[in-house]
Design a protein around this nucleic acid. Structure first.
Lengths: 345, 345
DNA sequence: CACAAGTGTACAATCGATTGCACCAATGTA
DNA sequence: TACATTGGTGCAATCGATTGTACACTTGTG
């Protein structure tokens, strides 16, 4: 059974000093109408009794919890954990505690987490949606409840909520152009689920780079998949076995890119000479492997910071007519050995 | 200004059905003394009004929040995020929401997070301490407040709290023995901060493996450091420049091991033929790099599950005379190319 | 000297849900 | 018929902190 927490309350402080709880509360909140003498007495007594402010009670009364909910598909990716880090920095600074939860890419878990967050009375929710999510009604519920919602990276267009993304189109375009400039003439694209904005945009960038460089592009060059490491490995292996020719790979994910590299290496195909390859996200392992993987940096930490700031603004302007905003950050191509040839073209 | 959240309360349901809030509360909690008819009416009305249980209010009244606080040094490591995953699984199952925060290896941040968690009235706290922590008084405070505290992996011995760890000594012993069996005669140990149990134990395992195999060991073979990737790189580079001979490396961290491998490769030293190498933690990248890194699997997810279960038990037995327990999991050596020689011995 | 303005606290309602106790009605029992 | 049981709800206090309003006392001003 839950035991009585013997924490002192403002009533205890009040009793000890022979004032009322209201005075204690005001003193603790540094209210201007309380005399300096009283304040100091209260503060002293509070620390003597080892008083701990009960956030729950205050939250209930005030109608705000100073909690910020964050839901990501998984924290087990450098991209997401860096974003979380950025969110934390800004949120903590502003007096918020951050509650992180994971959808594990499953719609059901995502919906359940929304319930938990709402029940916990968080002051706002930041989300990047999972791959498994196709129905967004659980997010609509957040909006209906008048709780600020900010999305990042993976963003369903249909939701009237502010969002922070990077220019995936541009990142993909640059990476693909780079491969073409390195002499690639037939580039394979490991693509992600098309219902997610980021993968659609990356594919568009890939396609447009071909168009604008006058390079032909067949649909068979585009291989959709889960973008997991093994998926990348298997897709490329299948291509090789089928004898399909190609001299470049642009993967929408670093993980799939690594899988692809392993498939190539297993057959003794030289990287980047025979096949040049680029990924997306700049996961730390991209600089550990050999050759280093060319990839696109997403400025994840900054993305988190920006997202949190937008939440703060939105929270302060709650009630104002709401105009969702979209912030687009600029990605950066990181060129490494996996694509850098000695004699381009 | 914070807007009035127009969420319906049990009072609204009560009014709509012309019963009292107490009845509604009981109906929602499926109290046996409420008639089936009433319950169903309440449930229907609740969903009609889109009622959301206010967790805060219930928590305040009940004295328990159904929140579980988890603090790790960083979520940006596969080990920790897997543990968190394990904790989540068990905790969610038991009706707890998990609140994750990071100390970023800094004592100050760690202490601040403890305050946040306590104020948020979490029902329990699970911690793995940061490298920067030398004073543990902020944890003592958790115990004083009668809040269940469970530690994992990095555990200060001085705290009277239950803990879940793996047998670091054994993992290190096995890894080192393996290197010796592969023919290594002078193994370098990249060691971690000695004030953390895990690094002390790993070093002991390293030492004992030498002792029990009758291999000499000089203190110069042990190189303490931060165990970051660059630290591993720099330590090994320095050794090489100094002309120190060695034919094996056991790193207490996979990251430092990768740094070491890069240093070796940069000088054209063959792995594992000239120098065999093993790390610790089985981070995902260990199987991506080449050669694959021999390492020690820590069963992180299971560790999280176990930790959460211990919290649950402890919570249920609050008030009982408290006997801290220590659970030790068994690690597993994963042998890969970085240490596997063609002709051992 | 009267009154306005400013200081410092107290009172009591409130946030939303929970729960011990009281109460009434219906049913069962002797 | 009188009384004990059981089922089904209502009443009101409670969790701990916050806050609008009221009130008493000073101080300042004309």
């Amino acid at each position: 059974m839950a035991q009585r927490k013997n924490s002192p309350t403002i009533h205890d402080i009040a009793k000890a000093l022979d004032v009322t709880p209201s005075t204690v509360s005001r003193a603790l909140n540094n209210h201007p109408r309380i005399s300096q003498t009283t304040k100091e007495a209260v503060w002293r007594m509070a620390s003597t009794l080892n008083y701990q402010h009960n956030h729950l009670a205050a939250a209930l009364r005030r109608g705000r919890s100073s909690l910020l909910g964050v839901m990501v598909p998984t924290i087990n990716r450098s991209f997401f954990s860096s974003v979380v880090r950025g969110i934390e920095e800004v949120a903590n600074e502003a007096g918020y505690a951050v509650m992180v939860c994971q959808s594990h890419e499953m719609q059901e878990q995502e919906a359940a987490n929304v319930q938990v967050l709402l029940r916990t009375q968080v002051d706002g929710i930041i989300v990047s949606v999972g791959k498994g999510t196709s129905d967004f009604s659980h997010f609509q519920q957040i909006i209906d409840r008048n709780t600020p919602l900010v999305l990042f990276d993976r963003v369903p267009e249909s939701l009237p909520a502010s969002a922070v993304v990077i220019d995936d189109y541009r990142g993909a375009y640059q990476a693909t152009r780079h491969l073409i400039e390195q002499g690639c003439r037939r580039v394979i694209h490991l693509a992600g689920p098309a219902h997610l904005n980021i993968y659609r945009d990356r594919q568009r960038g890939f396609e447009d780079a071909h168009r604008l460089h006058g390079l032909p592009l067949e649909t068979s060059q585009i291989l959709p998949g889960s973008l997991q490491q093994d998926a990348g490995h298997d897709s490329i292996t299948a291509l090789l076995e089928a004898g399909e020719p190609f001299d470049g790979i642009f993967s929408a994910s670093d993980y799939a890119a690594v899988g692809a590299m392993q498939a190539l290496k297993a057959r003794g195909i030289a990287i980047p000479e025979a096949v040049a390859i680029a990924g997306f996200s700049n996961e730390p392992f991209t600089s550990m492997i050999e050759p280093g993987l060319t990839t696109v940096e997403q400025h994840s930490r900054q993305m988190g910071q920006t997202t949190a700031r937008i939440f703060l603004e939105q929270f302060d302007h709650q009630g104002d007519p709401y105009v969702p905003r979209r912030t687009v950050l600029t990605p950066e191509l990181i060129v490494r050995g996996s694509s850098l040839r000695q004699n381009p073209r």
